[in-house]
Design a protein around this nucleic acid. Structure first.
Length: 404
DNA sequence: TCTGGGGTCCTAGGACCC
DNA sequence: TCTGGGGTCCTAGGACCC
């Protein structure tokens, strides 16, 4: 038997993606500190992205509150996010990658894996291919990226973090002891603050410590995750680059932090209806139906609770999803709850074909009505049509959000 | 550092069926 | 009447990522 051929996988990571998109769209922003953030007037304004001109010299970081960012870098240009532009840029970048290999898997809006194992003979050495990709993205899209190259997705991903912005790093299996193992264990993909804490108790401080820790103990303490993280620390990952992940979504949800804490059932109801409208609109746009509705409430202590219910039939009809959410609220509502944020998610998704069995007239009418509304929203913007119950102070809230 | 919004995967326990 | 065990679905919660 022939030895298994080593795969060559890259992770393309757009640098400061949101900020870079604005700089590409508006040349006057280039070489300036640009900060993309939520509405600073609202209490939940945080930094979503910052250009390198803001990051390095001023210490601006993603997640920082806008007021803190303003203090650190008063001269920065603060911009509200424009998700449509980000999606547009992201799609164009994926198209460029597909010119190199059909095996492209978008990992997030600003990252994608590409498996170029089969293209080496045709396109040249991996580093050269990476340079060409970087050049194409810079020339055609106008933004920089960092590329990580490795024998699997994990090492490609870790490699991409080695040098930012505009980096190009190769991480081979032989590099693991020198380059991977000295890093703090928190840097390993999959290790968050919780595992970091657990590991500290076991005297695991670096990725190398984890790699050499007895597997049996990790398995016993952390189950499957213990095993996966141990493999990761040793640079092992068998997951393939899967282009099909492109269309495959598992849930559609929206969440909103309220302008102030709400405490009345009726106040929350309005928000839930608005969220139902949003997620059903999205579901209809991709011809998806969901069977499970989950309602998440975050209270003034930042405690998050979620409750779910399964509908008799999968649906993307606003009123059905809204009614399901209301049922959850009625069952679980705490009288004294002070709600900071509300989220609604549709999951257990299937495509529209499973819908054919429904011949109930009212449902068909509702469906037609909602489709007509969707068409108007597509034409005139999301705020063009509202239900009467939405026309409260929050109606205005969404309107402003939509127009920014 | 007073904390947004979009997701994914895993686990445990209970209900229910055969 | 009491009992076994496997399988599947559902819900709640935890952890992680960008």
């Amino acid at each position: 038997m022939l030895p298994m051929k080593q795969k060559i996988i890259m992770l393309i990571d757009m640098n400061s993606f949101f900020a870079s998109v604005h700089q590409a769209l508006d040349p006057s922003l280039q070489h300036k500190p640009v900060i993309v953030c939520g509405d600073p007037a609202k209490r939940h304004g945080i930094v979503l992205a910052a250009s390198y001109e803001a990051k390095r010299p001023y210490g601006i970081k993603t997640g920082m509150t806008v007021s803190e960012a303003r203090q650190k870098c008063p001269g920065a240009i603060f911009i509200s996010p424009q998700y449509r532009s980000y999606v547009d840029f992201s799609t164009r970048i994926l198209n460029i990658l597909q010119d190199y290999s059909p095996l492209v898997e978008p990992y997030s809006i600003d990252e994608a894996f590409i498996d170029i194992t089969g293209c080496i003979n045709l396109l040249g050495k991996p580093q050269q291919i990476a340079k060409n990709i970087k050049g194409d993205i810079a020339n055609q899209i106008g933004i920089m990226c960092s590329v990580g190259i490795g024998p699997n997705k994990l090492l490609a991903k870790m490699a991409a973090d080695f040098e930012k912005p505009d980096g190009l790093t190769v991480l081979t299996a032989e590099d693991i002891p020198d380059k991977l193992w000295p890093l703090p264990v928190r840097e390993l993909f999959g290790v968050g603050s919780r595992y970091e804490k657990h590991f500290r108790k076991l005297n695991i401080k670096t990725i190398g410590d984890l790699a050499h820790f007895p597997l049996e103990i990790l398995k016993k303490k952390f189950g499957l995750m213990g095993e996966i993280l141990h493999l990761s620390a040793n640079g092992i990952d068998y997951s393939p680059v899967e282009p099909s992940n492109m269309e495959y979504i598992k849930s559609i949800g929206n969440q909103i932090t309220l302008p102030r804490d709400y405490s009345g059932f009726d106040e929350i109801k309005v928000i839930v209806l608005e969220l139902a409208e949003q997620i059903c609109h999205r579901a209809r746009a991709v011809n998806s139906l969901g069977k499970t509705v989950s309602l998440t409430l975050k209270d003034n202590y930042f405690i998050t609770r979620s409750h779910a219910t399964t509908m008799p039939q999968p649906s993307n009809i606003t009123n059905e999803v809204y009614q399901a959410a209301l049922e959850i609220m009625k069952t679980h509502w705490g009288k004294n709850a002070r709600v900071r944020a509300v989220g609604l998610t549709l999951s257990n998704l299937t495509d529209n074909k499973s819908r054919q069995l429904r011949i109930d007239n009212d449902i068909i009418k509702q469906e037609e009505l909602e489709k007509a509304c969707d068409a108007i929203k597509t034409r005139w913007g999301y705020g063009a049509i509202k239900r009467a119950t939405s026309l409260t102070d929050l109606g205005g809230y969404y309107e402003r959000k939509e127009n920014r």
